[in-house]
Amino acid sequence: MDLALDVRDLGKTFGGVKALDGLSFGIARGEVMGLIGPNGSGKSTTVNTLAGVFPATSGEIRLRGKPVHHLPEYARVQAGLTRTFQTASVFPEFTVREQVLLGAEPARTRRGVWSMLRSGARMEPELRGRLDEILQLTGLADLADTRIEEVSAADQRFLMIATALAADPAVILLDEPAAGMVSHERDRLSHLILALGARGHAVLVIEHHMSLIMKVCDRITVLNFGEKIAEGTPREIRSDQRVVDAYLGEAA
């Protein structure tokens, strides 16, 4: 299978604490993978280690077959791995379109000193079309020219996804994308995540909201104490006794 993201034996220790221990999984092109587990199980550490916020202690991360674990954060983005944050992270003084345009920087064809000194509003025509499509997809087309500080918290979260999409990544990491969302916003989000898979992105979703996870994921990886305790389809995960004991509980 052609993996967009291939994680092998990933380990991360903070001081003496093993936050991640021998984590391996792969996500294919167009696949949506869920990452769940109780608080402190290593989900955020996984995202931050994959994104390159801090280096992995051990293991390999391959993006479309190429190792990226030695690269700094920005270089991993350029290689095709983008992310969103748990809390809304935006440029409040920019308009929605301006932020998405900045997210597209790694994918821009015109580089070099002179094109960097040309007007900031100017863009390649094909890029304009692509950004419009992303704004449409994320439901932000009507807000394109609104200053971000005036945009609702939920739309700011969709904007993070739009920004992550602008670089045209192979892999997108969504770190608790539904946090703080109400039910109709979660519906909009689940449609979007499914659309991301349909567009051919490999998606990793970290989420506490189980019905969302069960709805959008092709497969789910379950973490507990930094180790993978299960991997499978939503149906398999729901009936896995170890997962129920560690995380889902009787209610699920």
Binding site: Y74, S89, F91, L102, E105, R118, T163
Partner: peptide, 25 residues
């Protein structure tokens, strides 16, 4: 007013996000 200037203004607003947008701040 240039593309480069937009990045500078972006750094002022949210440097973490600039890194996550694939730019070496």
């Amino acid at each position: 007013n240039s593309r480069l200037g937009r990045v500078l203004v972006a750094i002022r607003q949210n440097e973490t996000l600039v890194g996550a947008a694939g730019l070496a701040a």
